[in-house]
Design a protein around this nucleic acid. Sequence first.
DNA 1: TCTGATAATGAAAATGGTTGTCATGGTCAC
DNA 2: GTGACCATGACAACCATTTTCATTATCAGA
Lengths: 180, 180
Amino acid sequence: MRHSLNSRLTPPAAAIVQAALGRLEAVLTSHGLRLTSGRRAIADAILGRQGHFVIEELVEDLRARGLHASKATVYRALPLLTEAGIVQPAVVTGDEKSYERAVGQEHHDHLVCKGCGAVVEFEYDAIEILQREVAARHGFTLEGHMLQLLGRCPACRARSALAAENANRSQRREGEGSPP
Amino acid sequence: MRHSLNSRLTPPAAAIVQAALGRLEAVLTSHGLRLTSGRRAIADAILGRQGHFVIEELVEDLRARGLHASKATVYRALPLLTEAGIVQPAVVTGDEKSYERAVGQEHHDHLVCKGCGAVVEFEYDAIEILQREVAARHGFTLEGHMLQLLGRCPACRARSALAAENANRSQRREGEGSPP
DNA sequence: TCTGATAATGAAAATGGTTGTCATGGTCAC
DNA sequence: GTGACCATGACAACCATTTTCATTATCAGA
C-alpha cells in the first residue's frame, strides 16, 4: 500500500501529456470528431490541475488562462476526456461531484470522513486484483471501478470522544447528591 | 464468494423487520424526532420491496398501498432510514440513482455492465477485509463503503465481437480485387 | 383536558447541476 | 469556392432534490 500524495503534487511529464493528447485524438477520430482548440484547452487545464476539482472550478481556471470554454462545452467534452483517460470522477458520495486528472499519478481510491469531509487517497493492489477476479467469475471484462470507503478520521473520532466525555461530566454534575 | 440472489427474493422475517423498526426509533429519538405513521409507512414500503428501486417507484408504491407520503417526506426520511440501516444506495454510477432494502439480505456490491446497464450483485468477504485494513492503516473507523465495478457483460462482449466481425467482412468486400 | 411548544406534512416554489436547442461560425473534402 | 458537417456559446429546458410556508399532529406539563 503506497500513498500517492507525491504524484498529486507534480504535473505530469511532457511525454505523458503527449501520450494523453494522442489518446484524446484517437477517441475523437473514432467518434468522427476533431481535436479543436477548445477541447485542447480543456484537456490542458485538466492536465495542469492538482487534486480534486468541480466543474465550476475548471471553467474558472480556463477563464483565468484567458481561454474561453462555456460550461456546455466542458460538459460535452467530459465523456470524451474520460474515455481518453485524461480525467476521471473522484468523489461521488455526498453532495459535490468532483473530478481529478487521471494521468501522471498512480491509480488510487478514496477514503472519505463522514464527519469533516476530509479525503485521503490510498492505493492497494490486492483490492484491485480481487476486483478483477470477481469480474472474471461473472464473465465480465473489468473496465473500471468506483470504490469509496466512508468512515471517521482520527480527528473527528477524538472530537466526538471529547464531546461524549463532556456530556458525561455535566450529567454527573446534574445528578449531584444522588450517587449510586 | 456467494451470490445473494435468493435473499433478494424473500421478504425479511418478522423479527428482522422488528429489529429494523427498533433501530429506526432509536435513530429518531436520538435526533429528537418521532416515529410517525408516515415514516413507518415508508419504512414498511422499503422493507417489502424487492431489488433496486428509484424514489419515484417508492412513492408510487406507497400510493398503491393507499398510503400518503409526498415526495418531500420520502426525501426527508431517507437519511434517517439510511442511518437506521433500513435502506442503502444501490447503483450510483450512471444517470439513475437507485436504492435497495438494507436488511434481510447479505451485504453485497454491484457489477454494472457499461453496455446494457445490467447489474449483477456479488459478495466477496476478502475485499471487505482488505477495506477494513486500509481504513485502519489511516486511523479511520470504517462505517461503510461504496464499491461498483464497471465492465462489459458476456452478452455485450459477444455483441460487439460480432459487430466487429461484420465490419471486417464488409470491408473485405469493399476492397475486393485487391487481396493481400 | 387545555395549552403551548415543537415536530411533521403536503404542496408548491426554488435550486442547481446537467443537458438540449438553435443560430452562428469554423473546418474539411472535393 | 462550396456544400456538408462539426463546434461553440448563450440560453432555455430538465429534473432530482431541497426549501419554504402554512397547516396539522403530537407530546409535555399545568
